[in-house]
Write a protein that binds this DNA or RNA. Sequence first.
DNA 1: GCCCAGGAAATAT
DNA 2: ATATTTCATGGG
Length: 293
Amino acid sequence: MDTGTIPVDSLSGGLDLYRTLESGQSYCWRRSDGEMYHGAEPEDSWYATVVDGDVIRIRQENGILEWESTTDAEAAVRRLVRLDDDLEAIVAAAPDDPLLRDAYDAHRGMRLVEDPPFGCLISFICSAQMRVSRIHTMVSTLAREYGEPIEFDGKTYHAFPTPDQLAAATEAELRELGLGYRAPYVVRTAEMVASGDADPAAARGFEYEAARDYLTQFVGVGDKVADCVLLFSLGFDEAVPLDTWIKSAIEEYYPDCDRGSYADTSRAIRERLGGEYAGYAQTYIFHHLRTGE
DNA sequence: GCCCAGGAAATAT
DNA sequence: ATATTTCATGGG
C-alpha cells in the first residue's frame, strides 16, 4: 500500500474536503461509512474512488489530507480535488456582491473537482430531475453492477464502468436499476463513446461555447449537462451550468442577466460572476442556496 | 395522494 | 426559433 500526507496549510485557500466532495459536483467518490450525501460530515471515514485501475482513498483530519492507494497517488489526488488551484486568489478576484460574498464566506476551502470525463458525463446525464443523493446512488449502482472490481486492503472497490462495459448494458436492465427515462440516454451515449464516434474528452480542444455544443451531441445532454461536464471534468472554469438553483439566483439577485435563451443568459451571468472563474462562483452559489448554509 | 428533484427530447405553434 | 408536453421514481 502506498500512503502519503499533505498538510492543508500548504494549500492556498485551505481545503474543505467534505464540501468539495459532497456539494453535488462529483458522484465518482464513495464514503466508507456509506453516509455520503446524507448531510453529516464524516468522522474518520474515507472517500474512495478508482482511477485507471487504481484505488485511491482520502480523508481530511487534524489539518492533514491523508491518502492511501494501490499506487503512488499524490499527483492524482492533487488533480482530482484541484489542490494546486490558488483558491485564495480566486476568491480575492471574485466580484464583490452580497450573494457571492456570503457563498464564499460560508464554504471556505471548497474546491472544484476534476472528474474523469466519461464518468462525469454519465453522472450528469443521470442528474436530470434528480436529487443529489439519488444521483450518487445511481452512479454507485452502475459501478457495482458493471464496473471492474478491484481488491484493496481486504475490501472490494468498483471502478466506474468503461464505455464498452456500459454499452453492453440494456435499457431494460438500467430501468430495473432505477434509472427511469434516463436509461436509454445512458446506453446510447455509452455506445457513441465505445464506438469511437465521439469522445467527451475531445471537447478539451475547443473554445468554450464550441465545446458546449460538441457535448450536446450525446443523448441526454443539453446545454446544462454539457456545462457541468465542462466545469467538473474538462477544465472550463468559466462554465456556469444554468440549473434550477442558479436560475432562481438570477431571478432574485441578477435579474438583468435573464436574457431569455440559455446561450444569451449564460454569457450575461458568466460575465457577472467574473468571467474566467465564473464556474467557481456558480458552484459556491449553488451549494450555498441548496444547503441553506 | 401530492409535489419535487443540478433537464432533455419530442412535439406543437 | 420558441413554447408546451412527456418522461420515471424515491422521499418528504
